[in-house]
């Protein structure tokens, strides 16, 4: 799965988790929690768990804590995909 596809899916997940219209979710790899009002510590966990479900991967607690940039999330999903 390419990074673009992963990013696209994550954007859809974000719209769902943040309760936003998908067209209003503007994400680039550099987007962070500071750029999206709805992305706070509460929605962060829901976002990560939804990403886990969608891509059938599992993050460690330390990874969940650290992940703040969409690009890092995409890269980690990619790294955890079965070869």
């Amino acid at each position: 799965m390419s990074r673009e596809v992963i990013l696209g899916d994550i954007r859809e997940i974000m719209a769902d988790v943040f309760d936003m219209d998908v067209d209003d979710v503007v994400v680039t790899p550099d987007t962070t929690a500071d750029d999206i009002e709805e992305w706070d510590s509460l929605s962060h966990i829901r976002l990560i768990v939804a990403v886990e479900r969608r891509f059938k991967v599992k993050f460690t607690n330390a990874e969940i804590e650290r992940l703040r940039r969409v690009g890092d999330l995409v890269a980690l999903v990619e790294a955890k995909q079965p070869a």
Partner: peptide, 10 residues
């Protein structure tokens, strides 16, 4: 609590 929340949402 965050650790418990991760478990709960999973």
């Amino acid at each position: 609590l965050r650790e418990e929340e991760i478990f709960f949402h999973r």
